[in-house]
Amino acid sequence: MIEVVSQDRCVKCDVCVKVCPMDVFALGPDGIPVIARQDDCQTCFMCEAHCPVDALFVAPLSGPAPAGSPYTDEAALLEAGAMGRYRAVLGWGGGRTPGSRLDQNHVFTARLAAGSQPAEETPAGRRRVSGEPSA
């Protein structure tokens, strides 16, 4: 879930308020967004991807980080270079190569297709269930 909005880094552009699909942020009185509805956060990292100055940190947890968790410690996160990682791998921001250019999913989907022998109605033994999402 979203844990940190850096007061120092935020340039009050409102982008996170707009792009968050779950409407988690509200504009604070000073123009810096506040995490108004953390319970609604779906941990999608979209705000991180779109914040132009890497001012946001979304913890990988599907619930709120416990008190004292390193995921809420802004100074430590900055120190560790933990903020803005998604934007970096997407290759968004000046001087970066789009991450999609490095996409080699075809290697892995081909590998998967080659290894799978479909048989939904196998009569005996271990039933192969192919109704499983894989991507």
Binding site: R85, N105, V107
Partner: peptide
């Protein structure tokens, strides 16, 4: 590179 949102939550 292909599945960044598989690895990112683990990295974090």
């Amino acid at each position: 590179r292909s599945q960044p949102n598989y690895f990112l939550p683990l990295d974090k």
